[in-house]
């Protein structure tokens, strides 16, 4: 376990070891960073460090009965809360609080870990406020999030914020290649996730391979400004991208293609691309494009992402995007004074 933390967050590990040695662990933390960056692992390790019966310089021994139960999610004084469906509801926070009014089952130290904290409803978040500020008894809170900007400022200001940066992409790529994944594939995967396991799973997913090909096809239709790009949404895309997460994936893949084009435009290294396999084609693509056209295309896709987030009908979003991308990329805006 420590090995994993050591690999993912060596700097944070040191920092928290220092904090534990000084007995300066705060009562509320917000761990913020992409998936697969070790937030949960550090939270559990800190929880174990608080409960361990055989602390070593303030740190968890990982062997005692308490440590073992914490890591196996079995300790009664460590409560883990995760979204129930799409959100964390006010009842869940209420249950949590009720649990903590009781004295610790085995000690007076209690820990709660809230995953995807940004998914708390307004009610849930607000009802957590007072509790975060003045928890009854010895309570330590770890809120984990991938999108801290979606949390209430009043929650943020009650927590110590710790940023979890992802592993550098070259290292992730190397790790994936060590698992026998091709370089081309690895380059794309690390642009979609920081989670090695998730990336490895994706690499074996046949649907994903088809989806990737489809987006490339779509990109080519769009480049040719062929009406087919519009029709393609219904005839092909939506056959393979079928729900919210997949719609988002489709746009992310397309976004990465235009972003690669922009990177090539500005002479960045080919090894930073998500699609090194299409480098030659992308170079041809940018030959007649301006950076303004490329950034506008990227902005169109980002805007479509937002539309999806607010639950606009996916087919509509894709079709509109196709039209607008073809407009943007064909007609340079020359509306000069």
């Amino acid at each position: 376990m420590n090995e994993k933390i050591e690999r993912l967050q060596p700097r944070l590990l040191k920092q928290f070891q220092h904090i534990l040695e000084q007995h300066k662990l705060a009562h509320a933390y917000l761990f913020e960073g992409a998936r697969g960056t070790g937030k949960k692992e550090i939270a559990l390790w800190l929880a174990a460090s608080l409960l361990c019966v055989n602390k070593q310089d303030g740190k968890a021994c990982r062997k005692c009965v308490n440590c073992v139960r914490v890591f196996e999610h079995q300790h009664p004084d460590v409560m883990e809360v995760a979204p129930d469906g799409l959100s964390i509801k006010v009842e869940q926070v209420r249950d949590l609080k009720a649990e903590f009014v009781k004295s610790g089952v085995e000690s007076d130290q209690k820990i709660f870990i809230i995953e995807d904290a940004e998914k708390m409803t307004a009610g849930a978040a607000n009802s957590l406020l007072k509790f975060l500020e003045e928890p009854d008894g010895k309570v330590t809170a770890f809120l984990l999030t991938t999108a801290k900007q979606r949390l209430l400022p009043t929650i943020l200001s009650r927590c110590q914020l710790v940023h979890f940066s992802p592993l550098p992409k070259p290292i992730l790529i190397q790790e994936l290649e060590d698992k026998g994944i091709s370089q081309n594939q690895a380059a794309l995967l690390v642009h979609l996730t920081n989670d090695i396991e998730k990336a490895a799973a994706l690499s074996e997913d046949e649907t994903f391979a088809i989806q990737r090909e489809l987006i490339w096809k779509w990109f080519k239709w769009l480049t040719k400004q062929d009406d087919e790009a519009f029709i393609f949404v219904q005839t092909d895309l939506l056959q393979y991208f079928k729900e919210r997460e997949q719609y988002k994936l489709a746009l992310s893949l397309l976004l990465l293609l235009y972003r690669d084009a922009l990177k090539l435009f500005y002479g960045q290294q080919a090894d930073e691309l998500a699609f090194p396999r299409y480098e030659q084609e992308l170079r041809q693509f940018i030959a007649q494009k301006s950076s303004k056209q490329l950034t506008e295309a990227i902005e169109e896709i980002l805007l479509s992402q937002k539309k999806l987030e607010s639950n606009v009908n996916a087919q509509g979003v894709f079709e509109q995007l196709a039209i607008r991308l073809m407009q943007k990329l064909s007609k340079p805006l020359s509306s000069l004074t």
């Binding site: 972003r259 922009l262 950034t295 937002k306």
Partner: peptide, 22 residues
């Protein structure tokens, strides 16, 4: 403003960088 509700902060910053330098 745009970055507020997105997981693509880095892309927004890249676009902004292009705009600023151009």
């Amino acid at each position: 403003r745009e970055m507020k509700l997105t997981n693509h902060a880095d892309v927004y910053l890249e676009v902004a960088t292009v705009k600023l330098t151009q």
